[in-house]
Design a protein around this nucleic acid. Structure first.
Lengths: 348, 348
DNA sequence: ATTAGCACTCCTGGATAACGAGTGCTAACG
DNA sequence: CGTTAGCACTCGTTATCCAGGAGTGCTAAT
């Protein structure tokens, strides 16, 4: 990711690293004396001051006011993440904690995903989102039509990823149970084994082979599937740990907090934030102004895809203040994504 | 609901009503002069002062400090709700707004419920919860067993309320598709038409009639259903509008806000708050200390059941600060519950 | 290039004072 | 006896001032 091209000699880079580390844990603007005293750079505070001046010039840090210490800018965090965080690993004990969470048996996909979000949230102290396996990456396993009485029929689609989608549809003329069953049977013959995102097309292509009286129902089902994929807002997602956003220290004013929580409630915003995560095979970090959501200028978003055998099938991530422990959080997001993928691939 | 037995003569009651009204909209402690000037009680501020003194004595209002106006206590709000709010109605235009929301076609139960929560939240400016139709009140319409490959089988249960429950189960010895289908068929014969909460028992009672090789699967399914109902945390609920809790004015300190949002994230808490709503055929209000959750002492909860033809099947409600517009909010909760029930009973 | 020294800036926190909203009490009134 | 006008009193709020101190930038020496 782009940051000011100004090359940093090694010491300046170390100073920047020290500033970010210290600010993240203390929350106070950090001064040259602190850096010189607590991080052994082998130079005096005056030298650090010169470096800091250069770092400010280059746009990595800034002073909230004349007589205060320095705070990293978004570019400063970005440099830190790019240069110092890619190798981050969790301590073994914590890795074990996450792994063991996924060995507990959990039979419902929805619960598993929600609990994953909850784990990630508690583990990182940030708000966490987990997306259900994407419909496009799912293969139809079974279709069922269930009469709910009257002219209402429920269309149930089971996918190999464990997702179950259901829609109520109204059939013009009440079909009798036998016809319903035959329709379902024929639908299954057409779509089982095909990816969900081409299922609708398959049905419509083959609908002519259906007996005339079954066609409207089949077509209706196809159209429902199409719609479902089109406006993807029905994409299932699990958001947990919103209360972490209300952490006294990191977001100063209520206005900001409210904006962030409000934004998180809009599924579309989350959808966009996590949209590409699935196709990028690593932990992705977006910092402050890199996020295209006005209310979230003080947030960072960390995402990762999770993968079953066949490749990435979904994504998850966290949302927190730009002032966060990137190394730890990135490692945690990666670890959880990895473990979730493993679990879905072969549930114990 | 209990409040101090001290009888209030009519004028005192009107003073109390004025205090509550004014405080709810202004957020400032209200003084005797304001009451005398803005609510025509036909008496002077000195008289109001005397009444207020009595009201404080009786526990309906209190002074945050000596030289301030009065604020209603929980008991004060309670009196207000009991005496002045039961007849509350929404203005026709707003009723229409709610009704029209429910005439839009929406075929997925989950989406419908979530959007209902969202509507209620936006309409009242509070956090809103909608519970899915209770499993105990649902009747089994269809059971399906779908092989997910390997030894994983998905159990899908469709209920008449539109709910679809699904669990992945592991069957000891891989059954072939024909056997799976036969099992499903037999299960259907046993449980279709029975309430969900007795379905498991029915299966276990009848399991002896199943061919030996199908029994383990049938039993496993029964046990899954049982578990599902036992720890009801899997009860589906939709929470929207949490960001309303972060409203600058009403909850003073961040600590409180965080506590409330944190509590709302615990599904169990919400479950308990809305548990009895379903069996009480009216709008129920719980105010501050009446709520058995420590973090929510500054909240009020307003709930109502929603009913299909056969009686109440679910509940919904809002959570807000004790300082809220009870009349409007109670009316809104009622109206939304009513409309939701109608929609579920006969979807357009 | 690094560092010690120093003047300068400006935020923070405590103290003080003026202000004003609201009360409780008393005495007068119908 | 309930109601009311008048008034002294309380106490939180806000503004102002001041001292303290953290941190900087600059300069000159090493």
């Amino acid at each position: 990711m782009a940051y000011p091209a100004a090359p940093l000699d090694e010491r300046k880079a170390r100073v920047l690293r020290a500033i970010v580390s210290h600010y993240v844990s203390s929350g106070e603007p950090v001064g040259s004396k602190t850096i010189a005293a607590e991080y052994d750079l082998g130079v005096s505070s005056a030298t650090v001051r010169n470096d800091m001046s250069a770092l400010e010039e280059a746009g990595y840090i800034y002073q909230p006011h004349t007589s205060a210490g320095r705070i990293p800018t978004d570019a400063g965090y970005r440099f830190f993440v790019n240069e110092f965080a890619s190798d981050a690993k969790l301590p073994p004990s914590e890795t074990r904690r996450i792994r063991s969470f996924f060995t507990e048996p959990r039979w419902e996909l929805e619960d598993a995903l929600r609990q994953t979000a909850s784990l990630l949230s508690r583990f990182t102290d940030h708000a966490a989102v987990v997306f259900a396996p994407a419909l496009e990456r799912s293969v139809v396993r079974h279709i069922e039509l269930v009469s709910l009485g009257g002219d209402r029929v429920m269309l149930v689609v089971v996918a190999d990823t464990g997702r179950v989608e259901n829609h109520i549809m109204v059939v013009p003329d009440a079909l009798d149970p036998v016809q319903l069953e035959r329709t379902a049977e024929m639908l299954n013959r057409v779509v089982v084994g095909t990816p969900l995102d081409s299922a609708a097309k398959r049905i419509l292509d083959d609908v002519e082979r259906f007996p005339l009286e079954l066609r409207p129902t089949a077509e209706r089902a196809a159209r429902l599937l199409e719609e479902q994929l089109a406006h993807r807002e029905s994409e299932r997602m699990y958001l947990e740990g919103t209360s972490n956003i209300v952490d006294e220290e990191k977001f100063a004013d209520l206005e900001t907090v409210r904006g962030v929580i409000g934004a998180l409630e809009h599924r579309r915003v989350l959808l966009e934030l996590l949209a590409d995560a699935i196709s990028i095979d690593r932990v992705e970090v977006r910092i402050g102004s890199e996020i295209p959501v006005h209310e979230m200028q003080h947030c960072s978003v960390i995402t990762a895809p999770y993968r079953a055998e066949g490749g990435p099938i979904g994504s998850l991530g966290i949302v927190g203040p730009t002032r966060m422990d990137y190394r730890r959080t990135m490692a945690a997001v990666w670890e959880v994504a990895d473990s979730l993928g493993r679990m879905l691939a072969r549930p114990s």
